[in-house]
């Protein structure tokens, strides 16, 4: 279980509070208006921000301070891959940041690439990949790392509708099969519905407790209604 225990983050005059729990294996969408604190929440869980108060716990134990030691992987919209490394190396650094791979680890990396359908691109460089393929490479790395939590910060927002749906579905399957707890920041209510079972609404510097996503969208509270406008899915 992922527990955000009375968290308070402060950054450049902006503050975010969160006090909530997410059960293991749940897929949660993080929604809300721009500037509401969605990315701050993710950066906090990832350990990029130090909380002013409270702590992040995993299965009852406080997470280590250093992001690299936390039981999670993170996928950004852009710049997940290092341009000078091959796709294989980009994935393999998920296991060994120093790229000293054993033969077994290399085989693992290749198998992760196979799982996302990029097996033939192992020796390519990121500049040779399409937007969707870059997303797949990022997923392969998260898969390889086998960390129980995956944070997704609008990972496919720049892709076209069909491709985005395809990537969301792939991510959903992977996360589901591996039993990973996933948090995804998104601007698109439809994406949230497609991917997640629960939604955390982040508005005015407060992250609300996750609610089942279907009922939430069917009967949105006023703040969510104002955010969605007439675009409710």
């Amino acid at each position: 279980m992922l527990q955000l225990d009375r968290l308070l983050y402060q950054q450049d005059g902006f503050s975010l509070t969160a006090d909530l729990q997410i059960a293991s294996g749940d897929r949660v969408a993080v929604i809300g208006p721009s500037g509401g604190g969605k990315s701050t929440l993710l950066n906090g869980i990832a350990g990029f921000l130090v909380p002013r108060e409270g702590q992040v716990l995993w299965n009852g134990k406080p997470m280590p301070d250093h992001p690299g030691e936390r039981p999670l992987s993170i996928l950004f919209q852009d710049h997940n891959l290092f341009p000078h490394l091959t796709v294989l190396d980009n994935v393999a650094i998920g296991l060994r940041p120093d790229m000293r791979l054993s033969a077994f680890q290399k085989a693992q990396a290749i198998s992760a690439l196979d799982q996302v359908g990029l097996g033939d691109k192992a020796m390519a460089h990121p500049r040779d990949l399409s937007g969707g393929q870059k997303g797949r490479a990022g997923l392969a790395r998260a898969l390889l790392r086998q960390r129980p939590i995956l944070l997704l910060d609008e990972p496919f927002a720049a892709l076209g509708p069909a491709l985005k749906d395809e990537m969301l579905e792939l991510t959903r399957q992977i996360v589901h099969q591996a039993g990973i707890t996933a948090l995804m920041v998104t601007h698109d209510p439809q994406d949230a519905l497609n991917f997640a079972q629960y939604a955390i609404l982040v508005i005015d510097g407060r992250a609300q407790a996750p609610a089942p996503i279907g009922p939430l969208f069917d009967h949105p509270p006023p703040a969510l209604q104002a955010y969605l406008g007439r675009r409710a899915p």
Binding site: A46, P67, I74, D78, H79
Partner: peptide, 10 residues
Amino acid sequence: ERFRVAESLG
């Protein structure tokens, strides 16, 4: 993001 990726990979 690059720094954060590196950071989160430890």
